[in-house]
């Protein structure tokens, strides 16, 4: 134990928490774990409740301006309702990692509610784009099907996503923030 205790004590004292004993240290560790798992639970709960694999997304492009700007946050909901023209949806094109937020301008559906993937044919367009999205889809792809769709936009929160964009553009900001928060939790004494 002393093997761990020694260096840890040293670390703690250098952080200004030298008077902590091991029991306290472990409690803080458990607290940290609790925070991480709670966050994970909330996220997974949201996934379950909204039916969308990614219930909160950050807008990364200006193609839906002036409704949504880069750095705005959108809340998604999948639901069982059929998709209709005019709805803003988030979709993923095969072979690309970044999901796209655009508006549906055409829907053709063979047998609504059948749940069969290629029964539904959808065409989208960005509000700020002159043309429809066929130029954006894979070569030869005319329509989106159900499998491409990740959810419809139901809620909007401006600007807050800027933090995510900054953290993505400058990863060391992210590490710094996580580090500071971690030290916080470990050294807090209640």
């Amino acid at each position: 134990m002393d093997l761990i205790k020694g260096p840890l004590k040293g670390l703690m004292s250098s952080l200004g928490a030298g008077d902590m004993d091991l029991r306290q240290l472990l409690t803080q560790g458990v607290n940290l774990g609790l925070i991480v798992t709670t966050a994970l639970m909330i996220w997974k709960g949201l996934v379950l409740f909204t039916g969308s694999e990614s219930p909160v997304v950050v807008v990364l492009s200006g193609s839906m301006e002036p409704a949504f700007y880069r750095g705005d946050i959108l809340f998604l909901y999948m639901g069982k309702k059929p998709f209709s023209a005019g709805e803003v949806v988030v979709f993923n094109i095969n072979g690309r990692d970044i999901p796209i937020v655009h508006r549906i301008i055409k829907v053709h559906e063979k047998d609504p509610g059948s749940g069969k993937d290629d029964d539904v044919r959808i065409l989208t367009k960005g509000d700020n784009n002159w043309g429809d999205d066929r130029a954006l889809y894979n070569e030869g792809q005319q329509w989106l099907n159900l499998k491409h769709l990740m959810g419809r936009v139901v809620g909007y929160l401006p600007l807050i996503g800027q933090a995510t964009i900054i953290m993505n553009d400058y990863p060391y900001v992210k590490y710094l923030l996580i580090g500071v928060l971690g030290i916080f939790v470990i050294t807090s004494k209640d």
């Binding site: 209709s84 023209a85 005019g86 508006r103 055409k106 829907v107 559906e109 063979k110 609504p112």
Partner: peptide
């Protein structure tokens, strides 16, 4: 406000067609 006109119709092949 995003104002738009949609036309919707049924055909023998497709039960739902919606076009902005």
């Amino acid at each position: 406000a995003f104002v738009y006109i949609t036309a919707d119709f049924k055909t023998a092949q497709n039960a739902v067609n919606e076009v902005m």
